[in-house]
Amino acid sequence: MLRIPCPFCGVRDEIEFRYRGDASVARPAAQADASEFFRYVYERANPLGWHAEWWLHVGGCRQLLRLERHTLTHEIRAVAVAAAAEPAR
């Protein structure tokens, strides 16, 4: 079980979060071609080591977090709120 430190809510159990995928890929611009979207949707690096991920805190503040998780040790670092809106505390 992961314990994820939410910048707003504090450290919470994994069950409160929904994994929203790889945060190292960015949605291409609207005018990008299909192959760029193909890479965005399907191609994944599967690294051994640090991996940027999206986690939505559905059981708490409902903010989308971008964090780095070590795929070997599950250590979590660099947790930040993705939100556009007002910065969290």
Binding site: F8, G10, R62, Q63, A83, A88, R89
Partner: peptide
């Protein structure tokens, strides 16, 4: 109230568990 805070003053309660 600020993040993660509740204020109670009868008969009202206000609280903040989500940013803004």
């Amino acid at each position: 109230p600020g993040p993660g805070e509740v204020r109670a003053s009868a008969p009202r309660v206000s609280l903040c568990v989500r940013p803004q």
